[in-house]
Amino acid sequence: MTGDNLVQCASRHIGEVYQLGAAAELENPDYAGPWDCADFVSWCVYQTFGVKLGLTAAGHPYTGAWIKWAEDPDHALPLEDAYQTPGAILVRRAHHYGAGHVAISDGRDGTIEARGQRYGVVRAKGRGRVWDLAGLPAAEP
């Protein structure tokens, strides 16, 4: 599987509902929301690569866990590269807007993300928004 496969997986969910604190069923391939940002990215990564990432010690998707993951040099990817890398994970720390956020790069300066209640799962601009870290889940064993 590749980053393009991750983008394809995420794209199939555009238009679905966002709900803060949603609990995605990671192992359910038919799950269709509601989503929050971390659940969406963790579910898409699991469905594409079969690896559970961005989870707390209790096994729940959490943006803070994605931050720790992206801070690890084994996963890190420069932001400029991430904008052009399909399937790269873009991460924002909470200090910018009071809440962290995580999204999937489409490889063309955009994202696919569970953006918020007003938006749901959408394609959005990636470059030009605030992101702190990026990583590449395809590099996982």
Score class of each variant (00 low, 15 high):
19 Q>C: 12
97 Y>N: 13
38 A>V: 03
29 P>T: 09
69 W>D: 03
12 R>F: 10
82 A>W: 06
45 V>C: 11
66 W>G: 04
54 G>K: 00
24 A>N: 01
21 G>S: 04
96 H>G: 09
33 G>Q: 05
95 H>P: 08
52 K>Q: 08
29 P>C: 09
28 N>G: 07
107 G>R: 00
113 E>A: 11
81 D>K: 14
32 A>L: 10
17 V>H: 08
60 H>P: 02
61 P>K: 05
108 R>I: 10
57 A>H: 13
42 S>K: 08
6 L>E: 06
106 D>Y: 05
108 R>P: 05
14 I>L: 12
107 G>Q: 09
15 G>D: 11
44 C>M: 03
110 G>D: 05
34 P>C: 00
10 A>N: 06
84 Q>Y: 13
38 A>T: 09
54 G>C: 02
48 T>N: 01
116 G>P: 05
45 V>E: 03
34 P>I: 04
73 P>R: 10
29 P>E: 11
69 W>P: 05
14 I>T: 12
29 P>M: 11
58 A>P: 10
64 G>Y: 10
111 T>Y: 02
37 C>M: 05
48 T>C: 09
76 A>H: 14
29 P>R: 09
64 G>W: 06
7 V>N: 05
47 Q>M: 10
102 V>I: 11
13 H>E: 12
110 G>M: 08
69 W>R: 10
24 A>V: 12
13 H>V: 02
42 S>I: 01
100 G>T: 00
34 P>L: 03
11 S>A: 15
38 A>M: 03
105 S>A: 15
97 Y>F: 14
94 A>Q: 12
64 G>F: 10
112 I>N: 03
17 V>F: 04
53 L>Y: 06
114 A>C: 02
59 G>E: 08
48 T>D: 02
40 F>E: 00
12 R>S: 14
63 T>K: 06
115 R>D: 11
77 L>H: 11
58 A>S: 15
7 V>T: 07
39 D>G: 15
72 D>T: 13
49 F>I: 07
106 D>Q: 09
9 C>I: 08
88 A>W: 02
31 Y>A: 05
41 V>S: 04
69 W>C: 02
54 G>P: 07
25 E>P: 04
